[in-house]
Amino acid sequence: MILVTAATAPVGRSIVEQLVAAGRPVRALTRDAERAGLPEAVQIAIGDLSDPDSLRAALEGVMSVFLLAVVPGFAPAFLAAAKEAGVRRIVFQSSGAVDDAAAEQPNAIAAFHAELEQEIKASGIAWTFLRLELASANAIQWALDVPGQLKAGDTVRAPYAKAAGSPIHPADFAAVAAAALTSSEHEGAVYRMTGSQSLTHAEQIAAIGTAVGRELRFEEITPAQAAEAMGPYAPAEVLLADWAEHLHRPAPSSGVVEAVTGRPARTFAQWAADHATDFTA
């Protein structure tokens, strides 16, 4: 049995769907079974990472876990429950900001994930770390609610039109995760998760316009205006620093998706086409 946490988020949902399609037994951890909308073959476990009792039930009979952690302080109870249940493998969505060579991590996001990586290693359970590069997280879409902006009109207001990103398609991330969940080949590996193309913010918005059949306008705003416009859970300072860093150099492309799956990573244009309905009323 494979347990997928954050199973209704884009990556988690795609992991579940790909595992089911491959005939693998899957259990999804979710707070609301009625609204999960997952395939019928999936077992539903009600709970979350902050509830040790729900974790024990969710982990029963589980061999591999996909872990996306957003709850500070959950790790000791989770790892203890995982060991007790006989979990053999954890595939952890970590952060590309983690610096293995640094005496001190560069920011709070890196520190949070670096600490979790060390706790997972210390548990004795086999692990694979999928470090999502910030430049590949498609952050402009969620931090500045691009879908919401485009439902209101044809203008996207965002900072740094020339900042480069390499957004990774959730299905590609999920394919690498599924491979690591189902094979010992990837145990002990640290993968830098990126998309295949370096595109500026303006180029990304133009690609979305092509996908939805609209001519979109990118209106550049200042970093201060962007910080004010971002949602309360967006790490504005970290995002703005990363975007500024990629104003004059391309975003990373690691080639991990192709190396692990044997096929090229999906393009940003494919992502935009797959999500075209997100940008319309």
Rank of each mutant, 00 (worst) to 15 (best):
T194C: 11
A207E: 13
M63K: 13
Y160W: 07
R27E: 04
A139V: 11
T8Q: 07
V16T: 11
A281H: 09
F279D: 01
D100R: 12
R89K: 15
K162M: 11
R13H: 12
A57Y: 00
A259D: 07
L67S: 04
Y233N: 13
I221A: 01
L181A: 04
A81W: 03
S184G: 12
Q204R: 15
D274I: 12
G12Q: 07
R157S: 14
L3T: 03
G96D: 06
S254A: 14
V42T: 12
A21Q: 13
Q141D: 14
E119S: 14
A189S: 14
P106T: 01
S94L: 10
A137K: 11
R266E: 01
V156F: 11
G188H: 08
A152H: 06
A177W: 05
P232L: 08
L116E: 04
T267S: 15
F74P: 00
W142D: 09
P76F: 05
E185F: 12
V91L: 07
A226F: 06
D154Y: 00
I140D: 08
V256G: 03
D172R: 10
Q43C: 03
T30D: 01
A229G: 09
K121S: 02
G124K: 10
A241L: 00
P10E: 12
W271M: 15
D99S: 12
M1Y: 03
A241H: 00
S54C: 04
E203V: 07
F173G: 00
R35N: 13
Y233C: 00
E117A: 10
I221Y: 02
P147S: 10
H113L: 02
A139F: 15
A272V: 10
T222K: 05
T194F: 08
T5F: 07
A41H: 05
P39R: 05
G255W: 02
S196A: 15
A234C: 10
E228W: 02
L68C: 05
A211Q: 05
F66A: 06
P52M: 03
I208D: 03
E219I: 04
A33K: 12
D274R: 10
A101L: 12
L247Y: 01
A69G: 01
A269F: 05
R88D: 01
A135P: 05
L247C: 11
G124Q: 09
G12R: 08
A273K: 14
K121N: 02
H246A: 02
A273E: 13
A77K: 10
G195I: 05
V42D: 03
A174V: 07
M193I: 15
A174R: 03
A137L: 13
G37T: 05
P235I: 06
A85L: 06
